[in-house]
Lab assay of single mutants.
Amino acid sequence: MTSCHIAEEHIQKVAIFGGTHGNELTGVFLVKHWLENGAEIQRTGLEVKPFITNPRAVKKCTRYIDCDLNRIFDLENLGKKMSEDLPYEVRRAQEINHLFGPKDSEDSYDIIFDLHNTTSNMGCTLILEDSRNNFLIQMFHYIKTSLAPLPCYVYLIEHPSLKYATTRSIAKYPVGIEVGPQPQGVLRADILDQMRKMIKHALDFIHHFNEGKEFPPCAIEVYKIIEKVDYPRDENGEIAAIIHPNLQDQDWKPLHPGDPMFLTLDGKTIPLGGDCTVYPVFVNEAAYYEKKEAFAKTTKLTLNAKSIRCCLH
Score class of each variant (00 low, 15 high):
5 H>L: 12
5 H>I: 10
6 I>T: 11
10 H>W: 10
17 F>K: 04
21 H>A: 14
22 G>C: 08
28 V>Y: 15
30 L>W: 01
30 L>K: 02
33 H>E: 12
36 E>V: 09
37 N>Q: 14
41 I>R: 02
44 T>E: 11
44 T>G: 08
45 G>Q: 09
52 I>N: 00
52 I>P: 01
55 P>M: 15
60 K>W: 11
68 D>K: 05
71 R>G: 13
73 F>Q: 12
75 L>A: 11
77 N>W: 12
78 L>C: 12
78 L>D: 07
81 K>L: 10
84 E>M: 07
86 L>Q: 13
89 E>Y: 04
96 I>E: 11
97 N>D: 09
103 K>C: 10
107 D>N: 09
108 S>N: 13
120 S>P: 01
125 T>P: 00
125 T>D: 00
125 T>A: 09
130 D>G: 05
130 D>R: 03
134 N>Q: 15
139 M>H: 00
146 S>V: 09
148 A>W: 11
149 P>F: 03
151 P>H: 08
152 C>R: 00
155 Y>C: 15
170 I>L: 12
171 A>D: 01
176 G>C: 12
176 G>P: 10
179 V>T: 05
181 P>H: 02
184 Q>M: 11
187 L>G: 05
193 D>F: 06
194 Q>A: 08
197 K>S: 15
197 K>I: 13
198 M>Q: 03
199 I>P: 02
199 I>C: 07
209 F>H: 04
216 P>A: 07
217 P>V: 05
220 I>E: 03
222 V>R: 00
222 V>N: 01
228 K>P: 14
231 Y>E: 01
231 Y>R: 03
232 P>A: 03
247 L>W: 02
252 W>M: 10
253 K>Y: 08
257 P>T: 04
260 P>E: 06
264 T>S: 12
269 T>P: 08
274 G>H: 05
275 D>P: 14
275 D>G: 12
278 V>H: 04
280 P>N: 00
280 P>A: 04
281 V>L: 07
286 A>V: 11
287 A>P: 14
290 E>C: 08
290 E>I: 13
295 F>A: 00
296 A>P: 02
298 T>V: 04
298 T>C: 11
299 T>E: 11
301 L>I: 09
306 K>G: 12
306 K>A: 14
308 I>M: 12
309 R>E: 05
311 C>T: 08
313 H>L: 11
